[in-house]
Design a protein around this nucleic acid. Sequence first.
DNA 1: GGGTTTTTTGAGCGATCACTCAAGTATATA
DNA 2: TATATACTTGAGTGATCGCTCAAAAAACCC
Lengths: 190, 190
Amino acid sequence: MPRKPNHDRAELIDRARDLFWRQGWAGTSLKDLEAVLKMKPGSFYAAFGSKEALFEIALDKYAEDGAGRLAELVEAHGPMAALKRYPELAICREEAPAKACMLSKTLLELQAHRNPLAQRASAHLMRMEEQFAALFAQMQQDGEIAPEHDPKSLARRYQSDLLGLRVSAEREGIDAHAIAREIAEGLDRL
Amino acid sequence: MPRKPNHDRAELIDRARDLFWRQGWAGTSLKDLEAVLKMKPGSFYAAFGSKEALFEIALDKYAEDGAGRLAELVEAHGPMAALKRYPELAICREEAPAKACMLSKTLLELQAHRNPLAQRASAHLMRMEEQFAALFAQMQQDGEIAPEHDPKSLARRYQSDLLGLRVSAEREGIDAHAIAREIAEGLDRL
DNA sequence: GGGTTTTTTGAGCGATCACTCAAGTATATA
DNA sequence: TATATACTTGAGTGATCGCTCAAAAAACCC
């Protein structure tokens, strides 16, 4: 009986994620969203409820996609090669709306006001780190890295290096690829 | 003949810097500033001209203080010890309004809109990096690190590590001191 | 085509944004 | 004490914020 929506919801979410990723929470107004999504306020609120609700969905999609890309990399090349390639992959994608990580941007912007979105970003970062830790643990089982290391510590440091890399990549006049290479080479010494 | 201002300008700037550092650009309203500085709008605009002008002053003060703290550390303990202590120092100060670096927060928040404040933060980061590079160069001259390293590359990586550390320190449930320790220990291997 | 249901539209809501300015107040010199 | 010269005050500016809702338009059923 009813009419169907004009837009593909999944693509709307992707476009919103890219806009939020680039411009941040406060830097993205509803006018910006309306322009990018080609929706009037009424449709927007019927579809997503609020700016905050859409940001949450976008953040989750961002984290999910990131985890998926890492999983694919592991599937294709194994844990060690995946972790060595991941830094370069994180900053090289031309189509990405920003070099820096959306999770860290959200955390830094909203943490001070105790916005739930910051906690959500923090939780996603922790989940990433656990994914890294699992890979380090497997590498240890496989004898690829020395047994005296603590996988969780390695993951924490790797995550920190990655976040630093992606902030650096946002700067002008910095060869971030060189940093990515150094992070990858650092894994050889484990 | 005239009346003197009620407030000490230097302390006003420090308080504004702390608020901007903690809450970011968009996260800090004029109401917030009025409350913290105990100034009414009229006084505020007479003293600083605009929110943007004050943020710029605050950003410069932040960078200046950071450079000063590093210089003191070098003065007291020499380049190597200074660089080894600096990471821990950057995240341990209880009175600091945030763990993350105000320069990187500003860069990440405002870069997308090409706000001049982002460029200014970027320039400050570059000046920091040059300070690091000079220290690495001196350490090389003194034979403290191997001669095959490029001081500029070391500085770039050190800066990246520092930025990552300070984002990590903002997260909950992360032992950032452990990361700081690892960064310091990394300098031993040069 | 008629009727039902859903989506789309866009003017406009109250709240907040950064900011202004005329009036009031305090401190200096004369 | 009188006057001049700041500084402080705070109501109020227009613009923009996220968001609402009644009406118009479109897609489905029979």
